[in-house]
Design a binder for these strands. Structure first.
Lengths: 194, 194
DNA sequence: GTCTATATAGCGATAGAC
DNA sequence: GTCTATCGCTATATAGAC
């Protein structure tokens, strides 16, 4: 911090994104000023505009990067039995949410501060992710190892349940991540009638 | 709207609260100005300060009112079997969340914009509500009609699952509220091993 | 690439008239 | 109870020097 003058292009970009993510998640997009982000990085506010055309683009970039990383990280194995795939999804989603809780929070909370066109793009990526779980439930339904009344709604319910882990989980608390995964898998398995 | 001059004390107070709730939920506390709220109500910005000492108090009041109304609305019947109580809770929580979705969203989202002392008060009310569900799960566990690995975590998971209904439910959509309640009760019942 | 300086606008909150 | 007017401050974004 407190740096002034001098060109550090190779690191300033990532630093801006890290600072913006942390501050937006903590205080909200609208509550954070470009000056605050700049101060955190150690540059003057004007310098940020060499990296982003405006504040809105910075928010969108953070959310899009998060969603694309999430989608790329999930590797389904459609050859495995549906219940094996479902257990992997449950543990993957919990671990990924906890490892990127700022991004998860931001991508859910600040949708409303996106321009209409940006909102549509992020919503599409979210639906793509949701459909990954839906396809597992559908295959399980077909194999009769899963029994739910409504695929779409059950997928939304499960993702809601799993994502909410970020609301209360604290590293170093009563339960470690493995144990949390165990308990949630027990809940999810029962929920889908397996 | 567009009203100017004239004293309407008996209605202005509620109108301010309604407008603030709607705008805060839609755009975020920090993104909404007192001038915007005033415009929506049809008064000048200065007039708001006859009803609230400042913007922060207005936010806190909305959240506290919501939590207290929620707590007062839930009437448990501890004489009933735990599974009956759990079904009632599931349907109550869904219906209440959908009927007050702006308040639900606000009370979850804007915790971070509360002062420390206000944050503690709201958090306590939330924990009070969560413990209502925990007591049902505990009684069910004792009667051996419910089997979960961890009462606290399962309560958080269930509330997360139920509350997320506000993310996708649209009145007049594919499913009505009764049907949604049926499906969620099926999921919740299975999740707790009943 | 980053700085300083600034244009232009809006903010929360208050004072005093009616 | 509401208005008008205003204080003091901060916001996003841009221009031009280095």
């Amino acid at each position: 911090m407190a740096r002034t003058r001098g060109s550090k292009a190779e690191i300033t970009g990532p630093l801006i994104r890290e600072a913006a993510l942390r501050l937006f998640a903590r205080h909200g997009y609208a509550a954070v000023s470009m000056r605050q982000i700049a101060r955190e990085v150690g540059v003057q506010a004007g310098a940020l505009y060499a990296y982003t055309p405006d504040k809105q683009a910075l928010l969108f970039d953070l959310m899009e990067t998060h969603m694309q990383r999430l989608l790329a990280s999930w590797q389904d194995d459609t050859a495995s039995p549906p219940l094996v795939r479902l257990e992997r999804f449950v543990r993957f989603h919990i671990a990924d949410s906890l490892d990127h809780s700022d991004s998860v929070f931001l991508s859910y909370m600040e949708l409303r501060n996106l321009s209409e066109v940006n909102h549509r793009k992020i919503s599409k990526l979210r639906r793509d992710y949701e459909s990954k779980l839906e396809s597992i439930l559908r295959d399980g339904q077909q194999d009769e190892v899963i029994g739910v009344d409504d695929i779409r709604l059950s997928a939304m319910a499960l993702i809601g349940m799993l994502t909410a882990v970020t609301n209360w989980y604290r590293a170093g608390g009563r339960l470690d991540q493995q144990r949390v995964g165990d308990i949630y898998w027990g809940l999810a398995k029962g929920a889908v009638g397996a």
